[in-house]
Simulated assay, not measured.
Amino acid sequence: MTAPIVIIGTGLAGYNLARELRKLDSTTPLLLITSDDGRSYSKPLLSTGFAMGKDADGLGQADAGEMAEKLNAEIRTHTRVTRLEPAARRIWIGNEPVVYRDLVLAWGAQTIRVPVEGDAQDAIFPINDLHDYRRFRAAAQGKQRVLILGAGLIGCEFANDLLTGGYQVDVVAPSTQIMPGLLPLEAATAVQGGLQQLGARFHLGPVLQRLERTGDGLQARLSDGQTLNCDLVVSAVGLRPRTELAAEAGLQVARGIVVDRLLQTSQPHIYALGDCAEVEGLSLLYVMPLMSGVRALARTLTGTPTMVSYGAMPVTVKTPVCPLVVSPPAVGAEGHWSVEAQGADVRARYLGPSGQLLGYALTGAATQERMALNRQLPPVLAELPQVLSLKA
C-alpha cells in the first residue's frame, strides 16, 4: 500500500493544503491528524463572533466527517502525535507508528501565557482556536465585564468585538500605545480613540500582577497599584510557533520551524506550513502568506517543485469602529514615517532613504488608498527562478 501524505493540523493551513492537493491529485492517500475535533472554521472569525452573534457552532463550517468525504482523506481527531522519526519516515501516536510518504507540519502556534498571582488563573482565557472560543463563550454567558491582556492587533480586535457585543471592556498592556511595533503613534491614536468612543478603557504601561476571586466576580491588581473589577480575562499577549516536537526530532528551529523556499525543513520529506513555519527568517502569522505557502506546497508535493514567494501583504485589522489596513515595513528597514492626519483618517507612509514606499498604515477613510499604495510596495519575499531541488 502506498504511504500517505500526512498533514498534522486541521486549521486553515492543514485543510487548505488538503484542498489544493486534491485539485491536483485525487488519488494519493491523504491522512490528516488533529488534537481537536477537526471541525473546519476560519480562525480570523474568532474575533468577530460576538458582534455577529455567533457561538462556536455558528462559526464552524463542516465537521471532520464531512471534510473527510470532501477531501477523500482519512482524518483522525482527538489524536496527539508524540514523536517524529525522520530517518524512518514515520511518526508516532503513543505506541502506534504511522509511515508517511511526505509529512507536513501545520500545527500552528500556541498562546503565550503570562504568570499571574492569585487564585483565579482559571478565569484567564486565551482564544486561539474554536475550542478556546467555545469555552470562553460559555464562561461569558450572563457576564458583563471583560479584561483584555494585550493591546496588539488581536487584543484590539477582541476589544471591538466584545464592545459591539454589549460587554464592558478594559485593556491592559505594558506599552505606551496600542499595536506597538506595527503602527506609528498617529494611527495607533486614531484606532484607540475609536475604541474608546465605543467604551473601551485603556490602561497602558502596567501589567496584570494578581487576579483574585471576590464576591461578585474578579479583582485584578495591576503592577502600578490600580485595581480593576471584572468577570473574565481574555489573554491576547501573543503567539509562539509550535516547535517542540520538531526540535526533539532534530529539525532546525529558530523562532519557528526553519524551512527553505520550498517549505522543506532541514530533514527530507518533512515540510512546515503556516504559523509554525519560518521562511527565510520570516514568521508571518497572517492568512495571506499562509495561502501563498499552501499553493506552492501543493504543487511541490504533486511533483512540481515550486518556491514560495510573498508579494505585498497588507493586513486588514478587524476594528470596524476605526477601519485599519497596515503593511508594516520589513524588520530593520531604514527609513522614516511620513504622516498626514485629519481626525480619525490617518495616511502614514514608511519611506526609504530614496523616498521609496516600504510600508504604510491607513485608518478611517484613508483605507481607500490601500490598492494604490499596494502597487508601490516591494514584495515581502521576491520571486526567484525555480531552481531549488528537493532534499533526497
Rank of each mutant, 00 (worst) to 15 (best):
R83S: 14
Q61R: 12
R76H: 11
A88L: 14
A88S: 14
A68W: 03
L71F: 08
A73V: 07
T77W: 08
V81I: 11
W92E: 10
R76W: 14
D63Q: 05
L71S: 10
H78E: 02
E85R: 13
A62D: 12
R83A: 15
A73P: 04
T82L: 10
E85I: 13
K70R: 15
R83T: 14
R83C: 04
A62I: 06
P86W: 06
A88D: 12
G94E: 09
R83F: 05
G94Q: 12
M67Y: 00
L71V: 01
I91V: 15
G65T: 03
R83K: 15
P86Q: 10
G94L: 09
E85L: 07
H78G: 09
A87P: 00
N72T: 13
E69Q: 13
L84P: 02
E69R: 11
R80T: 11
R90C: 10
E66I: 05
I91Q: 08
D63I: 11
L71R: 04
R76I: 00
E69L: 11
L71P: 05
R80S: 14
Q61G: 02
E85S: 10
E66S: 10
T77Q: 12
I93W: 06
I75A: 07
M67V: 13
R89H: 14
G94S: 11
L84Q: 03
R83Y: 02
A64I: 02
T77E: 06
I75V: 06
D63A: 07
E85M: 05
I75D: 04
I93V: 14
Q61T: 10
E66H: 01
E69A: 14
T77C: 13
G94H: 07
E74S: 15
A68E: 04
I75F: 06
R90K: 15
K70C: 04
E69N: 08
I75G: 02
G65D: 11
A88K: 14
A62H: 04
H78K: 07
H78W: 09
L71H: 09
Q61K: 14
A88C: 05
N72I: 00
T82N: 11
R90G: 02
E85C: 08
R76V: 00
K70P: 03
E69K: 12
I75K: 05
R80Y: 04
T77L: 09
K70T: 15
A87V: 02
I93R: 14
E66Q: 07
G65H: 02
T82I: 09
G65W: 01
N72M: 00
R80E: 07
I93Q: 14
P86G: 08
L84G: 05
G65F: 01
E85T: 13
A88Q: 15
I75E: 04
I93M: 15
A73Y: 07
R80H: 12
H78C: 00
A87T: 11
T79R: 06
A88W: 01
L84C: 04
E74Y: 04
L84Y: 11
P86D: 03
I93L: 15
E85F: 03
R76P: 03
E85Y: 03
R80L: 14
L71Q: 07
